[in-house]
Design a binder for these strands. Structure first.
Lengths: 339, 339
DNA sequence: GTGAAAGCGCTAACAA
DNA sequence: TTGTTAGCGCTTTCAC
């Protein structure tokens, strides 16, 4: 059990018979230090294996060089890619990324946000839970001008930067696509109205129906939580209607996959009997048979740009630029399930 | 642009005409404080919206309540699940999780590990990159008795806790499975020998061949980096051999998927012409047609247990228990690609 | 049960 | 160009 004592700038200072502040300056490449001392100090630091105590530096400088991230679930591909994008950019700027997941529970989200706040993250990137109907925890940030940015799922009541895709247009497009392939009775399995993304997708769907003169039949709009349990049930309800739909726009790919499996089990041909589409382009969507039509969202890009935006705000605290809503393009991916 | 000044224990102390240390104690439920003052302080803290500065507390107490995580890529399902498991457990114990990804590059891994070290993480959970042939950066931790734990991919030269699956046995089992379904000429697309996981899978494969009296034909063992580019090439080489294999154990599911696509394109029937298996049970593996036989690894479990183990070490620094190698069970998943 | 004081390791204003 | 000094906000002895 050997235990190395950590080297501090004071140790270096003693060794070299100079002051700690000189060491500090030399180490941070401060301009008003002679090239000679700078080299000597850096050499010594290397020799003794000095590692700065970032905690102390942060306390002193009142910044943590850290951004906090809260997402519903880390293991969902969309969020994992976004985090990957955040981390990649943050790393180039020397920022750490603390992540936490709300598991789509408001209580856990609140707790995570509080923790990140207490840890003095310099900025916060979040995508809210399915239950989030309160914004107090996020006000902690916005009220103190600590940069806060939502991506994908946002709190409408909080004024801050947002990076989203146009769910309304995407919902409109994918519904139009179903219409253009000849579907006349199109249903939609929607997610919780509380979340902007599901609300927008649904409204895009409704608008497309109305633009093309198609009716919204009774029971054709199912609001669910889009879980592995809810989805199939909703689809079952749809297909059990007196006149079942000939096209279903599912609120996400997981639900579309469940629908696909339901069809296989019940000898329904996709897309002949019922055309299906999802949303998100999960990794499985391209390889399932029939492959799943869907909307691709640029998860990595959203994360990367979120990090860019927030770090830019952090580094320019006086930025008076109004909050931005950045809308990234989606891509309609037409595959066999609706071809 | 309003700007709230942060409340400190001193502010609370002033307001209440007591000392800062009393406030500190009251807030941390110290035993030698009267119930009355404790309540008063906590009430006031709530009232003024006091949020502890964790940075300062950490500096003082020399712990950060943070664990660092480095994985090759955050957006790979296995790692995302592991991180999810880590976060879930860490949260119950009040620990933060700083993540970073090496992108399978040694240089980035070194940099991430250094950063985490400088941030004084209390413990470190890592899964090494494909290039990691040097352990100096990890010694930073092991030499100082800062808990370090590898999961899945480890540095063999570093003595510390490990959580792994039995890749040797899993490789053996999946090869045996191919043999038992009648394959006589079984090839393997392996990953870099440098990583324990690929080496073990390969050796399990070789052992199974030898146990069942099957030969290893020339060119039947392909070592690649298992990328989306390498995998198909290796599979193409295999199928172009004078006598191509009738069963291929691919080092991971992605490569198996590529192989599957190659077969479709070249009118090879799976599993009739060639049986295929992967490794990892990615989300797409169960839904692709034909569904992919594979080995399921408990990613979430590994992460969860990794967090348990490391936090236990952190909280019991004097723990003289020898380092453990925890081996979690895998599950052979037989599906259509080899049935 | 409470307070005074020291200090975690670093940075930065001010002096020299 | 370098040193001195004073904290950042908190915890924790050591007194009382």
């Amino acid at each position: 059990m050997k235990k190395k004592q950590e080297i501090t700038i004071h140790n270096l200072a003693n060794e070299l018979n100079i002051s700690a502040s000189t060491v500090s300056r030399a180490l941070s490449d401060n301009s008003r230090i002679s090239k000679k001392t700078r080299l000597i100090v850096q050499q010594k630091a290397l020799e003794l294996g000095y590692r700065p105590n970032v905690l102390a530096a942060n306390l002193r400088s009142k910044k943590s060089n850290t951004i906090g991230v809260v997402v519903p679930r880390i293991d969902r591909y969309f969020f994992a890619s976004a985090i990957s994008g955040i981390e990649d950019y943050a790393w180039t700027k020397g920022f750490n990324v603390i992540i936490s997941q709300s598991n789509d529970l408001l209580a856990k989200e609140v707790s995570c946000v509080h923790t990140l706040f207490s840890n003095r993250v310099d900025g916060m990137i979040a995508s809210i839970s399915m239950q989030t109907n309160d914004d107090k925890h996020f006000r902690l940030f916005s009220e103190r001008n600590i940069p806060l940015l939502f991506f994908d799922r946002f709190c409408p009541s909080i004024d801050c930067d947002r990076i989203v895709v146009d769910d309304y247009e995407s919902g409109y497009n994918i519904t139009s696509h179903l219409i253009s392939r000849g579907c006349k009775r199109i249903a939609h399995i929607a997610g919780p109205e509380l979340l902007n993304i599901y609300k927008d997708r649904k409204e895009g769907y409704l608008k497309a129906l109305s633009d093309f003169g198609l009716p919204l039949y009774d029971g054709y709009l199912q609001e669910t939580r889009l879980t592995k349990e809810d989805g199939p049930q909703a689809f079952h309800r749809l297909m059990s209607l007196p006149v079942p739909p000939d096209g279903v726009f599912c609120g996400n790919d997981t639900t579309a996959l469940c629908a696909l499996e339901y069809c296989k089990k019940n000898n329904l041909k996709v897309p002949q009997d019922v055309a299906l589409t999802g949303f998100s382009d999960e990794p499985f969507s391209s390889v399932v048979t029939p492959s799943l039509s869907t909307v691709r969202q640029p998860g990595y890009q959203m994360g990367f740009q979120a990090a860019q935006k927030i770090i830019h705000r952090i580094e320019n605290a006086n930025l008076t630029v109004l909050f931005e809503k950045i809308v990234l393009p989606t891509q309609l991916i037409v595959r066999d399930s609706s071809r």
